[in-house]
Computed example of a mutant assay.
Amino acid sequence: MASALTPLLQSRHIAHPLPGPRSRELQAVRDREVTSAFGSALPVFIDRAEGGILLDVDGNRIIDFASGIAVTSVGASNPFVQARVAAQLEQFTHTCFMVTEYEGFTEVCRWLNAHTPGTFDKRTALFSTGAEAVENAIKIARAATGRPNVLVFDEAYHGRSLLTMAMTAKVNPYKLGFGPFPEQIFRAPNAAPLRWPGGAENATVEALAAVETILADNGPETFAAMVIEPIQGEGGFLVPAPGFLAGLRAIADAHGIVFVMDEVQAGMGRTGTLFASEHDGVVADLMVTAKALGGGLPLAAVTGRTELMNAVHTGGLGGTYAGNPLACAAALGVFEALEDGTLLAHATTIESVVRARLEPLLDSVDVVAELRGRGAMLAIEFA
């Protein structure tokens, strides 16, 4: 389905100082009508988006480094996504999959079962948001093991629902004033090389020892799941020290704990591989995906071992909008966009270009402490 709009130039252009006059007018309306509990990184209102550029209501073209918080990884208004969603829009917009089924849902599940790491037999459940999917991964792990406890890590971010707030490390703004939170959540240190007290070279061994101590103190047989992001997003794009994820995998195996990889922010091609955990060669029992999975529409998934996914009683998982047909159509467009590997190669190219420009600062600028990340998921830290 061809667009009648003129293609948006993929370059920065500032016609008016930000925010422009029309954005300021709309911001005044927003202040009157929308709760102040919603923050805003930039008080600019967007008229169009295409590729990596946002066009605001004042004619400014802005480079979209945020990508809707890691959602439009295949580019804003991707033609594959647009075409799939437009075709689905003509057929029907919603019928709950638990009431009457549709092919798009099963096709998304089929792709995830085939492409997520692990050669074992898999099943997938679709949901709407990353937090919802993380919660359901915990439900699945508890149903499969009969255990209550969950191990998470420093600097983690897993969502804004009550359970995922408990799993999230940062208090302000995510948890401040919203407690009490669900119990049975235990937190272990993450092997972040820059800040490890014993030095980067000791981060993996010492962090794994700390995990074993927490499990021993609370009874490893009481832990249903161990949940970690392969690269922590909100925590600061923290890449774990070499061997840390593999060590966690071994600990989980030793104690019969379900190993859950939260790839909500890092997954779907952002780091130059389909899933960030591929860089470490570590396979999870359950993998959570969202954000870029729907290419701009709300879609999330839990994919994992069949014996775990099917441990939940029939009717135990679901949701009115879980795997909405429009969102599933968008995901099929995302898969189509990723198919030839070009976007994965672009993510790797972005890393090469950024590192070539910024790595020399580590030696020449005292306050530059670290350049870290993988693919297009990169951060520079000042200290």
Rank of each mutant, 00 (worst) to 15 (best):
V171W: 01
V171Y: 03
V171S: 03
Y174N: 14
Y174C: 09
K175P: 03
K175E: 11
L176Q: 10
L176E: 14
F178M: 14
G179T: 12
G179P: 10
P180H: 09
P180M: 08
P180Y: 11
F181S: 05
P182L: 12
P182N: 12
E183L: 11
Q184Y: 12
R187H: 06
R187E: 09
A188E: 08
P189C: 13
A191V: 02
A191D: 05
A192K: 05
A192L: 01
P193S: 11
L194C: 04
R195C: 03
R195P: 00
W196F: 15
P197R: 00
G199D: 05
A200Q: 11
E201H: 15
N202A: 03
A203K: 06
T204F: 10
E206R: 13
L208N: 06
A209W: 05
A209Q: 14
V211L: 14
T213G: 00
T213N: 12
I214G: 04
L215A: 12
A216D: 14
A216N: 14
D217L: 15
D217V: 02
P220G: 11
T222N: 15
F223D: 07
F223H: 02
A224D: 07
A224I: 08
A225M: 06
A225W: 04
M226N: 12
V227Q: 06
I228D: 11
I228Y: 13
E229C: 15
E229P: 04
P230Y: 14
G233R: 08
G233D: 10
G235C: 06
G235H: 04
G235T: 06
G236S: 11
G236Y: 05
F237N: 12
L238T: 10
V239R: 15
A241F: 04
A241V: 01
G243L: 05
F244E: 01
F244N: 00
F244W: 13
A246D: 13
G247K: 02
L248Q: 09
R249H: 13
I251C: 05
A252V: 09
A252F: 03
H255N: 15
H255G: 02
G256A: 03
I257S: 06
F259T: 04
M261T: 04
M261G: 11
D262N: 15
Q265C: 12
A266Y: 03
G267T: 08
G267I: 13
G267V: 09
M268D: 04
G269M: 08
G272Y: 04
T273R: 15
E278N: 13
H279I: 05
D280T: 07
G281W: 04
G281A: 07
G281V: 06
V282R: 02
D285H: 09
D285P: 09
D285I: 00
A290G: 02
K291Y: 11
K291R: 14
G295C: 08
G295M: 06
G296C: 01
G296Q: 02
P298K: 03
A301E: 03
A301G: 02
T303H: 01
G304C: 06
E307T: 14
E307I: 08
L308F: 04
M309Y: 03
M309S: 03
N310A: 10
N310R: 14
V312H: 08
V312K: 09
T314F: 11
